[in-house]
C-alpha cells in the first residue's frame, strides 16, 4: 500500500476541537512542516499533547490551542519557550501540566488500550490538583500501596517526524533518541509521519541497524516526504538545530513588530516549499 500524502491532505483530515499528539521532544525532531500547515489552516480549539517545543509555542501564539497537555515546553538551548510563556501568563489556554513520566504513562496506557497505568510520579505534588480528573488507585495485593492512576491519553491524531521512511509507512530514526514517537502513533486513531526522505524498503536496513526501525507500517496512515521538515528543530544526523533562527524566533515573543514580520515571512507562506525557500533566502542574505 502506498501511503504517500502531503501536508495539505493531512491537515484537511484534521478537525476543530480534536486531540492532537505531536512527537519529538522540546526543540528536537518535531514534525514542524505539519505544524506550519496547521498554522496555514483554520484549525482551532485543539487539545495538543506534547513534550513541547516550538510546536506548542507557535500553536499557542496563534490561538489554536484550547488545552495543552504537557510536561514542559522548552527550546532546549533556551530552557523556556517564550511564546508558550507569554500565552500561559495571559491565561489563554487550559494548562494540563504533568510530570514528564506521567505523560509517557498516559500515552502508553492509550497505546495498550488500558484505562490507566499506575505510578508514584505525581503523588504528593500539585499535579493532581492542577488535573482534577486524575485519581488514585490502591494495589489489590497485600502491599495495599496507593498509587496515582494515570489516565490514558487517547489521541484523535498523531504527527511525528522521522529521518527515513518507505512509502508503506515503515519509519526510521537515525538520531540518538526515538523519544515517544511510537507511543504517539499507537495512542492515536489517525497517524501521520513526515520524514526527511522516502526510500525503498530494501534501503532501510542499509541506512541504520534494525534497532532504528521502531515505527512499523501498522502504526502509520500517511507518509509525507518533507526534507527540512523538522526545521528549526534538530533532526540529527541530517541536520542540527538552526540556533540562529530559533534565537530570532524566541526574540519575537517580546517584540510584536518582529513577530508580525516573522509571521509574514515564515508562516504566511504558500506552502512548505515556500517556507524552505524563505529560510534559504534568509540564510544566503545573512552570509552575503
Amino acid at each position: 500500500m502506498d501511503k504517500r500524502t502531503t501536508e495539505r491532505e493531512v491537515v484537511a483530515e484534521l478537525f476543530d476541537g480534536m486531540t492532537l499528539g505531536i512527537g519529538g521532544w522540546g526543540s528536537r525532531r518535531k514534525p514542524m512542516s505539519l505544524v506550519r500547515e496547521i498554522l496555514r489552516s483554520s484549525l482551532k480549539d485543539l487539545t495538543v499533547v506534547t513534550y513541547g517545543g516550538p510546536d506548542a509555542g507557535l500553536l499557542c501564539a496563534a490561538g489554536r490551542v484550547k488545552r495543552l497537555i504537557y510536561g514542559f515546553v522548552s527550546l532546549d538551548s533556551i530552557p523556556l519557550e517564550p511564546h508558550f510563556r507569554k500565552a500561559r501568563q495571559a491565561g489563554s489556554f487550559e494548562a494540563s501540566e504533568l510530570d514528564e513520566g506521567m505523560l509517557q504513562w498516559g500515552l502508553y496506557a492509550a497505546a495498550l488500550r488500558l484505562p490507566f497505568l499506575p505510578t508514584r510520579a505525581g503523588l504528593g505534588t500539585d499535579v493532581p490538583g492542577i488535573n482534577p480528573e486524575i485519581r488514585t488507585v490502591r494495589s489489590p495485593y497485600d502491599d495495599g500501596e496507593e498509587l496515582l492512576a494515570m489516565p490514558a491519553i487517547e489521541l484523535d491524531a498523531a504527527l511525528i517526524h522521522m529521518n527515513r521512511a518507505d512509502a508503506r509507512g515503515n519509519g526510521q530514526f537515525l538520531g540518538p533518541d526515538l523519544y515517544f514517537d511510537d507511543l504517539y502513533c499507537m495512542a492515536a486513531k489517525r497517524r501521520f509521519m513526515s520524514c526527511e526522505k522516502i526510500v525503498e524498503t530494501s534501503e532501510l536496513s542499509q541506512l541504520g541497524s534494525m534497532h532504528t526501525l521502531k515505527i512499523n507500517r501498522s502504526m502509520v496512515d500517511g507518509v509525507i516526504e518533507a526534507p527540512g521538515g523538522a526545521h528549526f528543530t534538530e533532526c540529527p544526523p541530517d541536520y542540527g538545530r538552526d540556533e540562529a533562527f530559533q534565537k530570532a524566533y524566541a526574540a519575537t515573543a517580546k517584540d510584536e513588530d518582529a513577530f508580525a514580520a516573522f509571521k509574514s515571512r515564515y508562516l504566511e507562506c504558500e506552502d512548505e516549499a515556500d517556507y524552505q525557500k524563505a529560510v534559504q533566502d534568509a540564510r544566503e542574505g545573512a552570509s552575503a
Binding site: 494548562a95 504533568l98 510530570d99 506521567m102 505525581g122
Partner: peptide, 15 residues
C-alpha cells in the same frame, strides 16, 4: 491557572 511568571513547568520533579 494564570501565573504571574511561567517557569519551567513540572518537568521531571514529581517523579
Amino acid at each position: 491557572e494564570k501565573p504571574k511568571a511561567q517557569l519551567l513547568g513540572m518537568r521531571g520533579a514529581p517523579g
